[in-house]
């Protein structure tokens, strides 16, 4: 059991409001990802849950108990930091054992727990090494191991993959996903600005913007049913194309959004014409950048085998029922 309930949580530093009236329920065993651009307050939100920052308004409950002012170590949480925050003067074993030693667990118990965690994370060989002698990926695993040994109710991850190179990032992402399956009773909260991480890991995603909750939902809900222009633009890669003016007007909207994967090259009736200005062929897909007179080029995903000449005229059309209509306020128009 580890139910987190945030009610009207606010946080300000002097006059700057970093979190504005956040209401959020995170249920036991859930993998929740906080995502948003930098400065959106996602890290601050995580740190208030950890107890590293005190909240200035609202209540934070863990399992029905208000823990607004409770010390971090008494909240039953463990945290993996962006920089890993390994203790540089302690070897891997001592790093993982530190919390257990402070909790006065018996030596045998500590040894058993640390070795078990090291086993899962393939760290058994490195227990005597100092953090400085480990590679980036190994350090990352130590940081996770340090969290595991405490057997916390809630795992907190603060952008844990951002210091790894691309290949390692994919591997560690898988490892975290596996960890979540194995520790299905533990709640995990994960902060990232990378929407790929968010989409692949999360049970539910919480999109933040300027200290406010934009939308909470499963990855597919967010993808298929964005509740704002912002979420529509933020989730999905490459980002959704937005059309204003006449094109949108035809659909009865202020702004019309179509994802690159939902545009096809076609000169059927009602198609839009433009000029190819650039193409990025990734092998599997070919992203075509088309100038349609707007500020930003329109991106279309085409087959990797295709080829388009820069400067050539082109016609595109949205797939049926794959358009998103937004009103002036950026809210979706139903129906």
């Amino acid at each position: 059991m580890s139910h987190l309930k945030l009610t009207d949580v606010s946080k300000d530093y002097g006059h700057v409001q970093v979190l504005k009236h956040i209401n959020l329920d995170i249920v036991s065993g859930e993998f929740m990802v906080f995502v948003g651009p930098s400065g959106s307050g996602k890290s601050t939100l995580l740190r208030t849950i950890a107890g590293l920052e005190t909240i200035t308004g609202g209540t934070l409950e863990i399992d029905g108990e208000v823990v607004n002012h409770r010390a971090p170590s008494k909240r039953g949480i463990a945290m993996v930091f962006q920089s890993y925050a390994l203790y540089p003067h302690m070897n891997v074993f001592d790093n993982m054992a530190y919390a257990l030693k402070i909790a006065n667990e018996s030596k045998d118990e500590i040894k058993r727990k640390v070795e078990a965690a090291a086993e899962t994370l393939q760290l058994s060989k490195y227990l005597k090494r100092l953090p400085g002698q480990l590679s980036g990926g190994q350090r990352q695993r130590v940081a996770i191991g340090r969290a595991i040994v405490r057997d916390p109710k809630v795992f907190l991850f603060d952008e844990p993959l951002s210091n790894l190179d691309a290949a390692l990032r994919v591997a560690t992402r898988l490892q975290i996903a596996k960890l979540h399956q194995e520790m299905s009773k533990s709640t995990m909260i994960y902060v990232t600005h990378d929407q790929v991480e968010a989409m692949t890991l999360a049970d539910r995603i919480c999109v933040l913007r300027d200290g406010m909750l934009e939308q909470v939902g499963t990855p597919m809900e967010l993808y298929e049913n964005p509740q704002s222009l912002f979420v529509a633009g933020f989730i999905g890669s490459p980002k959704m194309n937005f059309f204003n003016g006449a094109i949108a007007g035809k659909y009865g909207a202020e702004t019309l959004g179509v994802r690159p994967e939902h545009l096809e090259i076609s000169d059927r009736e009602g198609s839009w014409s433009g000029k190819v200005i650039h193409q990025e062929n990734l092998g599997s897909d070919n992203f075509i950048y088309i100038d349609m007179g707007g500020e930003e080029p329109v991106v279309v995903r085409a087959d990797g085998a295709s080829h388009y000449t820069t400067g050539a005229p082109i016609s595109i059309a949205p797939m049926a029922n794959k358009t998103y209509r937004f009103d002036k306020a950026g809210k979706p128009i139903k129906g």
Partner: peptide, 18 residues
Amino acid sequence: LPREIMESARIDGASHFK
């Protein structure tokens, strides 16, 4: 000194003295 190390120790249950 890196702030995150202190925070990590705090979460690990270390007091200021520790």
